[in-house]
Design a binder for these strands. Sequence first.
DNA 1: CGCTAGCTTGATCTCACTCAATAGCAGTGG
DNA 2: CCACTGCTATTGAGTGAGATCAAGCTAGCG
Lengths: 250, 250
Amino acid sequence: MLTSKVLRNRTTELSDAERDTLECALSQTRTFAAGQLVVRQGPPVDVSTLLIEGLMSRHVDAPDGRRHLVAVHVPGDFVDLHAFPLKRLDHDVGALTPVKVAIFTHASLERLQKDDATLMRRLWFLTLLDAAMHRQWIYRLASLNAIERVSHFLCEMNARLLAIGSSDGSEFSLPITQADIGQVCGLTNVHVNRVLRELREAELCHVRGSRVRILNLSELVKKAYFDPAYLYLAPSIAARAAGRSGETHD
Amino acid sequence: MLTSKVLRNRTTELSDAERDTLECALSQTRTFAAGQLVVRQGPPVDVSTLLIEGLMSRHVDAPDGRRHLVAVHVPGDFVDLHAFPLKRLDHDVGALTPVKVAIFTHASLERLQKDDATLMRRLWFLTLLDAAMHRQWIYRLASLNAIERVSHFLCEMNARLLAIGSSDGSEFSLPITQADIGQVCGLTNVHVNRVLRELREAELCHVRGSRVRILNLSELVKKAYFDPAYLYLAPSIAARAAGRSGETHD
DNA sequence: CGCTAGCTTGATCTCACTCAATAGCAGTGG
DNA sequence: CCACTGCTATTGAGTGAGATCAAGCTAGCG
């Protein structure tokens, strides 16, 4: 089921009926190659994109041509649902890896809104989850230093992938480059590399290529000042993501 | 009219009828002193707060006790409307100055949602406007240096105050401390002070106490890489906020 | 096999932080 | 009225985290 990862293991869950309703509203699926731009900033849009497989990013292009990530998306994320009320985007949407997406026309979403107010509020919830993550990114950039920022990002990805069953709580695949991590954390690729080495030497976390292995989650969480409350996870998942509950493979 | 500044001068406007409907749904108004906490992170909430007068902030408290701003709100902002779908907040909400607010119970908003789907989508739009600002704050922190960040923040506040008629396009009141600006821009109060001096010496912008006087908007906009697209302003206001249209008092 | 993208490490530099001291200004109480 | 307190603003000197520049390494791939 294409929508099986939407709002999975969150404080707000979709019922099976709602999942069905949503599934019926989608108009098609598409694939994109890594690096492709999926939605461009500016012009009016009349569809929204649900990520099924792979990783996507949202980024603003700086005037000097450098791009900066403002969000990273995992399967089950409704990447540009905010375009439904906003009608145009203030940033680009791209594929970080090869991706499979499902397309919803805004017309079909409008029909949904009439028929199922509760489901609509769940979708609203989804867009606000993005906003909550944005806030945490702001906090991360404004108050944490390099190693704390990278640790925080790794904890976040672990938690989000855990929620959709793509992390076992300590090991997961994160097929993005060190330069990408730099853009997320406001660091240069060179410094990201040094930080990852430091995390490796501290026996907290191994990042090799696209493989992330968290060796000591509770210590990593502590170093990152990571509190998963902002992800609105179901309590059991939140506890695991925070490294409380013996799930840490030490 | 208490809701007269809500969605004023944006790409999406409220009709007079919608403004009436909204006005009828509000349950009471309250005032808070500067520095007071209005909503606390964590516990379930069943009301949302519309800012009528004054400035408010949203902030996360770092474990070391320091607080970091993730949003600054001006009159007409629905400060914690996101609590309506989310049901609890992942951050605190406080008054930066003495404020007057209007309270909406979530029960009354639910009634609204049933009766007026269009108005509801406008409110959804409002929460996404916050998210768009969050994204720009991320960009600001990750890619701009100190003077660019402060300039960008001043351009943003000018634009937002312009939209609600509280800036004439070059001069406005911003009753917050240099330390507050530091928390917004991820800088120390000391460095904010130096940056403001630099802006003064460059004849770009005078900030004295709570008075901000922009001397050369188009140059300030350029230095800050400021593009007001993310504020979804009505075209004429956007042009003025971007310093294009002879509104610059040089 | 050569090419390119990504990773790794070293040397140097600089922007912003830290620490510290002073000045201005409002409020408060004697 | 002035002394006192506390908060905000201002300026200087020294320091350090992370950027920049540069070079070598590794691995996938046509």
